[in-house]
Design a protein around this nucleic acid. Structure first.
Lengths: 210, 210
DNA sequence: TATAAAAGGTGACTTTTGTTACCAAATACC
DNA sequence: GGTATTTGGTAACAAAAGTCACCTTTTATA
Protein backbone atom coordinates (compact mmCIF):
# COMPACT_ATOMS: atom_id res chain seq x y z
CA UNK A 1 0.00 0.00 0.00
CA UNK A 2 2.86 2.33 0.85
CA UNK A 3 3.95 2.69 -2.78
CA UNK A 4 0.43 3.65 -3.86
CA UNK A 5 0.30 6.14 -1.04
CA UNK A 6 3.63 7.71 -1.89
CA UNK A 7 2.73 7.93 -5.55
CA UNK A 8 -0.62 9.62 -5.01
CA UNK A 9 -0.26 11.48 -1.76
CA UNK A 10 3.50 11.67 -1.18
CA UNK A 11 3.71 15.26 -2.31
CA UNK A 12 0.99 16.24 0.14
CA UNK A 13 1.84 14.48 3.41
CA UNK A 14 4.97 14.19 5.49
CA UNK A 15 6.64 10.80 5.96
CA UNK A 16 5.24 10.34 9.47
CA UNK A 17 1.64 10.84 8.32
CA UNK A 18 2.18 8.52 5.36
CA UNK A 19 3.37 5.88 7.81
CA UNK A 20 0.31 6.40 9.98
CA UNK A 21 -2.02 6.13 7.00
CA UNK A 22 -0.16 3.00 5.99
CA UNK A 23 -0.65 1.41 9.40
CA UNK A 24 -4.31 2.24 10.05
CA UNK A 25 -5.68 2.47 6.50
CA UNK A 26 -7.10 -0.54 4.75
CA UNK A 27 -6.84 -1.10 1.03
CA UNK A 28 -9.97 -1.88 -0.90
CA UNK A 29 -10.49 -2.99 -4.48
CA UNK A 30 -13.89 -2.00 -5.75
CA UNK A 31 -15.35 -3.41 -8.98
CA UNK A 32 -17.07 -1.15 -11.50
CA UNK A 33 -20.69 -0.56 -10.63
CA UNK A 34 -20.30 -1.30 -6.92
CA UNK A 35 -22.34 1.00 -4.71
CA UNK A 36 -19.97 2.45 -2.14
CA UNK A 37 -22.34 4.76 -0.31
CA UNK A 38 -26.14 4.91 -0.27
CA UNK A 39 -28.18 7.96 0.68
CA UNK A 40 -28.92 7.78 4.39
CA UNK A 41 -25.86 5.67 5.25
CA UNK A 42 -23.81 6.56 8.27
CA UNK A 43 -20.17 6.80 7.30
CA UNK A 44 -17.54 5.19 9.50
CA UNK A 45 -14.50 5.60 7.33
CA UNK A 46 -13.20 7.96 4.75
CA UNK A 47 -11.90 6.92 1.32
CA UNK A 48 -8.70 8.14 -0.32
CA UNK A 49 -8.74 7.36 -4.03
CA UNK A 50 -5.67 5.61 -5.37
CA UNK A 51 -6.93 4.69 -8.83
CA UNK A 52 -10.17 4.57 -10.75
CA UNK A 53 -13.13 6.91 -10.51
CA UNK A 54 -16.31 7.28 -8.48
CA UNK A 55 -19.61 8.75 -9.62
CA UNK A 56 -21.44 10.93 -7.11
CA UNK A 57 -25.23 11.05 -7.47
CA UNK A 58 -28.10 12.92 -5.89
CA UNK A 59 -31.65 11.52 -5.70
CA UNK A 60 -35.03 13.12 -5.03
CA UNK A 61 -38.04 11.66 -3.17
CA UNK A 62 -39.34 9.99 -6.33
CA UNK A 63 -36.12 8.08 -6.81
CA UNK A 64 -35.04 10.26 -9.73
CA UNK A 65 -31.28 10.49 -9.96
CA UNK A 66 -28.87 13.19 -11.06
CA UNK A 67 -25.12 12.98 -11.46
CA UNK A 68 -23.18 15.61 -9.53
CA UNK A 69 -19.59 14.86 -10.51
CA UNK A 70 -16.86 12.28 -10.76
CA UNK A 71 -14.03 11.82 -8.25
CA UNK A 72 -10.63 10.70 -9.44
CA UNK A 73 -7.31 9.54 -8.00
CA UNK A 74 -5.74 11.83 -5.47
CA UNK A 75 -9.18 13.00 -4.37
CA UNK A 76 -11.27 12.16 -1.42
CA UNK A 77 -14.99 12.54 -0.94
CA UNK A 78 -15.72 15.74 0.94
CA UNK A 79 -19.31 14.65 1.38
CA UNK A 80 -18.01 11.69 3.28
CA UNK A 81 -15.77 13.98 5.29
CA UNK A 82 -18.70 16.10 6.07
CA UNK A 83 -20.74 13.14 7.23
CA UNK A 84 -17.92 11.67 9.27
CA UNK A 85 -17.19 14.85 11.14
CA UNK A 86 -20.81 15.88 11.55
CA UNK A 87 -21.93 12.34 12.32
CA UNK A 88 -24.79 12.86 9.90
CA UNK A 89 -26.24 10.65 7.19
CA UNK A 90 -24.92 10.68 3.66
CA UNK A 91 -26.82 13.00 1.35
CA UNK A 92 -25.42 11.41 -1.78
CA UNK A 93 -24.89 8.04 -3.47
CA UNK A 94 -21.43 6.95 -4.57
CA UNK A 95 -20.98 4.31 -7.27
CA UNK A 96 -17.70 3.03 -8.69
CA UNK A 97 -17.50 4.32 -12.27
CA UNK A 98 -14.54 2.05 -13.02
CA UNK A 99 -12.63 -0.55 -11.08
CA UNK A 100 -11.25 1.45 -8.20
CA UNK A 101 -8.59 1.21 -5.52
CA UNK A 102 -9.24 2.97 -2.22
CA UNK A 103 -7.54 3.43 1.10
CA UNK A 104 -10.07 3.63 3.90
CA UNK A 105 -9.28 5.77 6.94
CA UNK A 106 -11.26 5.29 10.19
CA UNK A 107 -13.15 8.39 11.32
CA UNK A 108 -11.37 8.67 14.68
CA UNK A 109 -7.97 8.83 13.00
CA UNK A 110 -8.95 11.47 10.53
CA UNK A 111 -10.24 13.64 13.37
CA UNK A 112 -7.11 13.01 15.41
CA UNK A 113 -4.88 13.96 12.48
CA UNK A 114 -6.71 17.25 12.04
CA UNK A 115 -5.05 18.48 15.24
CA UNK A 116 -1.79 16.63 14.74
CA UNK A 117 -0.77 17.23 11.12
CA UNK A 118 -0.94 20.62 9.46
CA UNK A 119 -0.71 18.93 6.06
CA UNK A 120 -3.72 16.77 6.82
CA UNK A 121 -5.72 19.78 7.93
CA UNK A 122 -4.77 21.52 4.73
CA UNK A 123 -5.73 18.48 2.68
CA UNK A 124 -9.14 18.25 4.32
CA UNK A 125 -9.86 21.94 3.81
CA UNK A 126 -8.64 21.75 0.23
CA UNK A 127 -10.93 18.80 -0.37
CA UNK A 128 -13.88 20.79 0.89
CA UNK A 129 -12.90 23.61 -1.39
CA UNK A 130 -12.58 21.32 -4.39
CA UNK A 131 -15.88 19.60 -3.78
CA UNK A 132 -17.61 22.93 -3.30
CA UNK A 133 -16.24 24.00 -6.68
CA UNK A 134 -17.50 20.79 -8.23
CA UNK A 135 -20.95 21.42 -6.82
CA UNK A 136 -20.96 24.95 -8.18
CA UNK A 137 -19.90 23.57 -11.51
CA UNK A 138 -22.75 21.07 -11.38
CA UNK A 139 -25.15 23.91 -10.63
CA UNK A 140 -23.85 25.93 -13.58
CA UNK A 141 -24.37 22.99 -15.87
CA UNK A 142 -27.89 22.27 -14.70
CA UNK A 143 -29.05 25.86 -14.39
CA UNK A 144 -27.45 27.58 -17.34
CA UNK A 145 -27.09 24.95 -20.04
CA UNK A 146 -29.56 23.21 -22.35
CA UNK A 147 -29.81 19.46 -22.35
CA UNK A 148 -27.73 19.01 -25.52
CA UNK A 149 -24.79 20.86 -23.97
CA UNK A 150 -25.16 19.02 -20.68
CA UNK A 151 -25.17 15.75 -22.56
CA UNK A 152 -21.98 16.53 -24.42
CA UNK A 153 -20.19 17.66 -21.27
CA UNK A 154 -21.34 14.47 -19.56
CA UNK A 155 -19.93 12.37 -22.37
CA UNK A 156 -16.61 14.22 -22.32
CA UNK A 157 -16.31 13.87 -18.53
CA UNK A 158 -17.11 10.20 -18.73
CA UNK A 159 -14.55 9.70 -21.46
CA UNK A 160 -11.98 11.51 -19.32
CA UNK A 161 -12.41 9.50 -16.11
CA UNK A 162 -12.47 6.29 -18.12
CA UNK A 163 -9.31 7.27 -20.03
CA UNK A 164 -11.13 6.14 -23.16
CA UNK A 165 -12.93 8.08 -25.86
CA UNK A 166 -15.25 5.13 -26.39
CA UNK A 167 -17.81 5.07 -23.60
CA UNK A 168 -19.68 1.92 -22.73
CA UNK A 169 -23.14 3.14 -21.75
CA UNK A 170 -26.77 2.87 -22.85
CA UNK A 171 -29.09 5.76 -23.65
CA UNK A 172 -31.20 4.65 -20.70
CA UNK A 173 -28.30 5.01 -18.28
CA UNK A 174 -27.41 8.45 -19.58
CA UNK A 175 -30.99 9.63 -19.21
CA UNK A 176 -30.93 8.52 -15.57
CA UNK A 177 -27.68 10.34 -14.81
CA UNK A 178 -28.96 13.53 -16.43
CA UNK A 179 -32.47 13.17 -15.04
CA UNK A 180 -34.36 13.17 -18.31
CA UNK A 181 -35.95 10.51 -20.54
CA UNK A 182 -34.41 7.96 -22.83
CA UNK A 183 -36.24 9.39 -25.83
CA UNK A 184 -34.78 12.83 -25.23
CA UNK A 185 -31.26 11.43 -24.99
CA UNK A 186 -31.61 9.32 -28.13
CA UNK A 187 -32.87 12.39 -29.96
CA UNK A 188 -30.01 14.61 -28.82
CA UNK A 189 -27.36 11.94 -29.34
CA UNK A 190 -28.47 11.67 -32.94
CA UNK A 191 -28.07 15.42 -33.35
CA UNK A 192 -24.57 15.27 -31.83
CA UNK A 193 -23.71 12.41 -34.20
CA UNK A 194 -24.97 14.38 -37.20
CA UNK A 195 -22.80 17.30 -36.11
CA UNK A 196 -19.80 15.00 -35.97
CA UNK A 197 -19.23 15.34 -32.23
CA UNK A 198 -19.77 11.66 -31.51
CA UNK A 199 -20.15 8.30 -33.19
CA UNK A 200 -22.94 5.98 -32.13
CA UNK A 201 -22.88 2.19 -31.81
CA UNK A 202 -25.04 -0.06 -29.74
CA UNK A 203 -23.95 0.25 -26.09
CA UNK A 204 -21.05 2.46 -27.09
CA UNK A 205 -20.47 6.10 -27.85
CA UNK A 206 -17.24 7.47 -29.24
CA UNK A 207 -16.51 11.05 -28.33
CA UNK A 208 -14.82 12.82 -31.23
CA UNK A 209 -14.34 16.41 -30.11
CA UNK A 210 -12.09 16.27 -27.05
CA UNK B 1 -19.40 43.82 20.11
CA UNK B 2 -18.82 41.33 22.91
CA UNK B 3 -22.54 41.10 23.76
CA UNK B 4 -23.44 40.37 20.13
CA UNK B 5 -20.70 37.74 20.05
CA UNK B 6 -21.84 36.06 23.25
CA UNK B 7 -25.45 36.06 22.11
CA UNK B 8 -24.76 34.49 18.73
CA UNK B 9 -21.61 32.47 19.20
CA UNK B 10 -21.31 32.09 22.99
CA UNK B 11 -22.60 28.53 22.94
CA UNK B 12 -20.00 27.59 20.33
CA UNK B 13 -16.74 29.12 21.47
CA UNK B 14 -14.86 29.19 24.76
CA UNK B 15 -14.34 32.48 26.60
CA UNK B 16 -10.73 32.84 25.45
CA UNK B 17 -11.67 32.55 21.78
CA UNK B 18 -14.55 34.98 22.22
CA UNK B 19 -12.08 37.46 23.69
CA UNK B 20 -9.73 36.99 20.77
CA UNK B 21 -12.53 37.49 18.28
CA UNK B 22 -13.52 40.57 20.21
CA UNK B 23 -10.04 42.01 20.03
CA UNK B 24 -9.18 41.31 16.37
CA UNK B 25 -12.65 41.31 14.78
CA UNK B 26 -14.16 44.48 13.40
CA UNK B 27 -17.87 45.19 13.45
CA UNK B 28 -19.55 46.17 10.23
CA UNK B 29 -23.04 47.45 9.54
CA UNK B 30 -24.12 46.67 6.02
CA UNK B 31 -27.18 48.27 4.41
CA UNK B 32 -29.69 46.21 2.44
CA UNK B 33 -28.60 45.74 -1.15
CA UNK B 34 -24.89 46.32 -0.49
CA UNK B 35 -22.64 44.02 -2.49
CA UNK B 36 -20.29 42.33 -0.02
CA UNK B 37 -18.42 40.07 -2.40
CA UNK B 38 -18.12 40.07 -6.17
CA UNK B 39 -17.16 37.09 -8.31
CA UNK B 40 -13.41 37.13 -8.78
CA UNK B 41 -12.68 39.07 -5.59
CA UNK B 42 -9.84 37.95 -3.39
CA UNK B 43 -11.07 37.59 0.17
CA UNK B 44 -8.97 38.99 2.99
CA UNK B 45 -11.36 38.56 5.89
CA UNK B 46 -14.12 36.24 6.90
CA UNK B 47 -17.58 37.39 8.02
CA UNK B 48 -19.48 36.09 11.05
CA UNK B 49 -23.16 37.01 10.79
CA UNK B 50 -24.60 38.69 13.85
CA UNK B 51 -27.93 39.80 12.42
CA UNK B 52 -29.64 40.16 9.08
CA UNK B 53 -29.30 37.95 6.03
CA UNK B 54 -27.07 37.64 2.96
CA UNK B 55 -28.05 36.37 -0.46
CA UNK B 56 -25.52 34.17 -2.25
CA UNK B 57 -25.61 34.23 -6.05
CA UNK B 58 -23.94 32.43 -8.91
CA UNK B 59 -23.44 33.95 -12.34
CA UNK B 60 -22.62 32.50 -15.76
CA UNK B 61 -20.50 33.99 -18.56
CA UNK B 62 -23.48 35.87 -19.98
CA UNK B 63 -24.09 37.67 -16.70
CA UNK B 64 -27.18 35.58 -15.92
CA UNK B 65 -27.68 35.19 -12.20
CA UNK B 66 -29.04 32.43 -10.00
CA UNK B 67 -29.68 32.49 -6.28
CA UNK B 68 -28.01 29.69 -4.36
CA UNK B 69 -29.20 30.31 -0.81
CA UNK B 70 -29.52 32.77 2.03
CA UNK B 71 -27.19 32.99 5.03
CA UNK B 72 -28.56 34.00 8.41
CA UNK B 73 -27.30 34.96 11.86
CA UNK B 74 -24.97 32.49 13.50
CA UNK B 75 -23.70 31.44 10.07
CA UNK B 76 -20.57 32.24 8.20
CA UNK B 77 -19.85 32.00 4.51
CA UNK B 78 -18.08 28.75 3.75
CA UNK B 79 -17.34 29.99 0.26
CA UNK B 80 -15.42 32.80 1.82
CA UNK B 81 -13.67 30.33 4.08
CA UNK B 82 -12.78 28.32 1.09
CA UNK B 83 -11.37 31.31 -0.70
CA UNK B 84 -9.47 32.56 2.33
CA UNK B 85 -7.79 29.27 3.01
CA UNK B 86 -7.17 28.40 -0.61
CA UNK B 87 -6.18 31.96 -1.52
CA UNK B 88 -8.41 31.66 -4.55
CA UNK B 89 -10.92 34.02 -6.08
CA UNK B 90 -14.53 34.10 -4.99
CA UNK B 91 -16.79 31.94 -7.13
CA UNK B 92 -19.95 33.64 -5.89
CA UNK B 93 -21.51 37.03 -5.31
CA UNK B 94 -22.81 38.02 -1.87
CA UNK B 95 -25.42 40.74 -1.46
CA UNK B 96 -27.01 41.94 1.78
CA UNK B 97 -30.64 40.81 1.69
CA UNK B 98 -31.50 42.96 4.70
CA UNK B 99 -29.59 45.40 6.86
CA UNK B 100 -26.89 43.21 8.30
CA UNK B 101 -24.38 43.22 11.17
CA UNK B 102 -21.12 41.36 10.63
CA UNK B 103 -17.95 40.68 12.52
CA UNK B 104 -15.00 40.47 10.16
CA UNK B 105 -12.09 38.17 11.05
CA UNK B 106 -8.73 38.59 9.30
CA UNK B 107 -7.59 35.53 7.35
CA UNK B 108 -4.37 35.03 9.33
CA UNK B 109 -6.29 34.80 12.59
CA UNK B 110 -8.79 32.31 11.31
CA UNK B 111 -5.97 30.08 10.11
CA UNK B 112 -4.11 30.46 13.39
CA UNK B 113 -7.22 29.55 15.40
CA UNK B 114 -7.69 26.36 13.36
CA UNK B 115 -4.69 24.92 15.17
CA UNK B 116 -5.30 26.64 18.48
CA UNK B 117 -9.00 26.16 19.22
CA UNK B 118 -10.78 22.86 18.78
CA UNK B 119 -14.12 24.69 18.88
CA UNK B 120 -13.06 26.95 16.02
CA UNK B 121 -11.95 24.00 13.97
CA UNK B 122 -15.29 22.34 14.63
CA UNK B 123 -17.13 25.52 13.67
CA UNK B 124 -15.28 25.82 10.38
CA UNK B 125 -15.88 22.20 9.46
CA UNK B 126 -19.53 22.48 10.46
CA UNK B 127 -19.85 25.57 8.27
CA UNK B 128 -18.48 23.65 5.32
CA UNK B 129 -20.94 20.89 6.01
CA UNK B 130 -23.87 23.30 6.25
CA UNK B 131 -22.95 25.13 3.08
CA UNK B 132 -22.50 21.86 1.24
CA UNK B 133 -26.00 20.87 2.32
CA UNK B 134 -27.33 24.21 1.12
CA UNK B 135 -25.72 23.68 -2.25
CA UNK B 136 -27.23 20.21 -2.53
CA UNK B 137 -30.56 21.68 -1.62
CA UNK B 138 -30.14 24.30 -4.33
CA UNK B 139 -29.34 21.54 -6.81
CA UNK B 140 -32.47 19.61 -5.82
CA UNK B 141 -34.59 22.67 -6.35
CA UNK B 142 -33.14 23.50 -9.74
CA UNK B 143 -32.92 19.97 -11.05
CA UNK B 144 -36.05 18.29 -9.74
CA UNK B 145 -38.65 21.04 -9.43
CA UNK B 146 -40.70 22.98 -11.94
CA UNK B 147 -40.51 26.75 -12.00
CA UNK B 148 -43.78 27.27 -10.11
CA UNK B 149 -42.53 25.18 -7.18
CA UNK B 150 -39.15 26.89 -7.25
CA UNK B 151 -40.87 30.24 -7.21
CA UNK B 152 -42.99 29.37 -4.19
CA UNK B 153 -40.01 28.03 -2.25
CA UNK B 154 -38.09 31.18 -3.12
CA UNK B 155 -40.90 33.34 -1.79
CA UNK B 156 -41.14 31.32 1.42
CA UNK B 157 -37.38 31.48 1.98
CA UNK B 158 -37.36 35.19 1.37
CA UNK B 159 -40.26 35.70 3.78
CA UNK B 160 -38.34 33.67 6.36
CA UNK B 161 -35.05 35.54 6.25
CA UNK B 162 -36.91 38.86 6.23
CA UNK B 163 -39.06 37.80 9.19
CA UNK B 164 -42.02 39.14 7.26
CA UNK B 165 -44.68 37.40 5.17
CA UNK B 166 -44.92 40.48 2.99
CA UNK B 167 -41.97 40.55 0.63
CA UNK B 168 -40.84 43.74 -1.01
CA UNK B 169 -39.69 42.66 -4.45
CA UNK B 170 -40.51 43.17 -8.14
CA UNK B 171 -41.27 40.45 -10.65
CA UNK B 172 -38.15 41.53 -12.48
CA UNK B 173 -35.94 40.92 -9.45
CA UNK B 174 -37.44 37.49 -8.85
CA UNK B 175 -36.86 36.49 -12.45
CA UNK B 176 -33.20 37.41 -12.10
CA UNK B 177 -32.74 35.40 -8.91
CA UNK B 178 -34.41 32.35 -10.46
CA UNK B 179 -32.76 32.80 -13.85
CA UNK B 180 -35.89 33.06 -15.94
CA UNK B 181 -37.87 35.89 -17.53
CA UNK B 182 -40.17 38.48 -16.00
CA UNK B 183 -43.09 37.30 -18.11
CA UNK B 184 -42.74 33.75 -16.80
CA UNK B 185 -42.68 34.96 -13.20
CA UNK B 186 -45.72 37.22 -13.65
CA UNK B 187 -47.58 34.31 -15.20
CA UNK B 188 -46.73 31.89 -12.40
CA UNK B 189 -47.32 34.45 -9.65
CA UNK B 190 -50.81 34.93 -10.98
CA UNK B 191 -51.42 31.18 -10.79
CA UNK B 192 -50.13 31.10 -7.21
CA UNK B 193 -52.42 34.01 -6.36
CA UNK B 194 -55.44 32.24 -7.91
CA UNK B 195 -54.61 29.17 -5.84
CA UNK B 196 -54.59 31.31 -2.71
CA UNK B 197 -50.91 30.77 -1.92
CA UNK B 198 -49.98 34.43 -2.21
CA UNK B 199 -51.50 37.88 -2.52
CA UNK B 200 -50.16 40.29 -5.09
CA UNK B 201 -49.71 44.02 -4.80
CA UNK B 202 -47.41 46.31 -6.70
CA UNK B 203 -43.84 45.78 -5.40
CA UNK B 204 -45.13 43.48 -2.68
CA UNK B 205 -46.07 39.84 -2.37
CA UNK B 206 -47.73 38.39 0.70
CA UNK B 207 -47.02 34.73 1.28
CA UNK B 208 -50.11 33.01 2.68
CA UNK B 209 -49.18 29.35 3.03
CA UNK B 210 -46.31 29.18 5.49
C1' DT C 1 -34.06 -22.64 -31.93
C1' DA C 2 -37.72 -20.14 -29.95
C1' DT C 3 -38.86 -16.65 -26.91
C1' DA C 4 -38.06 -12.91 -24.02
C1' DA C 5 -35.62 -8.89 -22.75
C1' DA C 6 -32.79 -4.97 -23.75
C1' DA C 7 -31.57 -1.26 -26.74
C1' DG C 8 -32.79 2.25 -29.44
C1' DG C 9 -35.13 4.70 -33.62
C1' DT C 10 -38.93 7.71 -34.65
C1' DG C 11 -43.49 10.15 -35.28
C1' DA C 12 -46.97 12.64 -33.00
C1' DC C 13 -48.43 15.13 -29.44
C1' DT C 14 -48.38 17.85 -24.78
C1' DT C 15 -46.43 20.64 -21.36
C1' DT C 16 -43.26 23.85 -19.78
C1' DT C 17 -40.55 27.54 -20.49
C1' DG C 18 -38.78 31.36 -23.17
C1' DT C 19 -39.54 35.44 -26.32
C1' DT C 20 -41.64 39.40 -28.41
C1' DA C 21 -44.68 42.85 -28.49
C1' DC C 22 -47.81 45.96 -26.76
C1' DC C 23 -50.66 47.83 -23.28
C1' DA C 24 -52.16 50.26 -18.81
C1' DA C 25 -51.35 51.78 -14.25
C1' DA C 26 -48.40 53.57 -10.74
C1' DT C 27 -44.62 56.25 -9.48
C1' DA C 28 -40.69 59.39 -9.91
C1' DC C 29 -39.04 63.55 -11.33
C1' DC C 30 -38.72 67.90 -13.71
C1' DG D 1 -49.17 69.36 -13.85
C1' DG D 2 -46.72 66.98 -17.42
C1' DT D 3 -43.40 63.65 -18.90
C1' DA D 4 -40.55 59.66 -18.32
C1' DT D 5 -39.67 55.47 -16.03
C1' DT D 6 -40.94 51.46 -13.59
C1' DT D 7 -44.01 47.84 -12.91
C1' DG D 8 -46.66 44.30 -14.43
C1' DG D 9 -50.68 42.27 -17.28
C1' DT D 10 -51.47 39.58 -21.33
C1' DA D 11 -51.74 37.61 -26.09
C1' DA D 12 -49.36 35.14 -29.47
C1' DC D 13 -45.92 32.52 -30.79
C1' DA D 14 -41.44 29.59 -30.60
C1' DA D 15 -38.32 26.44 -28.59
C1' DA D 16 -37.11 22.87 -25.41
C1' DA D 17 -38.27 19.04 -23.02
C1' DG D 18 -41.36 15.39 -21.66
C1' DT D 19 -44.63 11.60 -22.92
C1' DC D 20 -46.78 7.91 -25.48
C1' DA D 21 -46.94 4.61 -28.80
C1' DC D 22 -45.04 1.46 -31.76
C1' DC D 23 -41.52 -0.38 -34.30
C1' DT D 24 -36.91 -2.92 -35.42
C1' DT D 25 -32.65 -4.93 -34.15
C1' DT D 26 -29.63 -7.11 -31.09
C1' DT D 27 -28.67 -9.94 -27.24
C1' DA D 28 -29.69 -13.14 -23.56
C1' DT D 29 -31.64 -17.24 -22.08
C1' DA D 30 -34.78 -21.08 -21.51
Amino acid sequence: MLEALEANYGYLFEEELLQEINSVGTCKDIPEGYKLIEIGDYIRSMPLLVSGAIKILREDENGDELILYFIERGDTCAMTLSCCLGQSKSEIRAVAETDTKLIMIPVQKMEEWLGKYKSWQKFILQSYHDRMSELLNAIDTIAFLKMDERLFIYLKDKAMVNHNDVIHVTHQEISQDLHTSRVVISRLLKKLAINGKIELQRNNIKVIDL
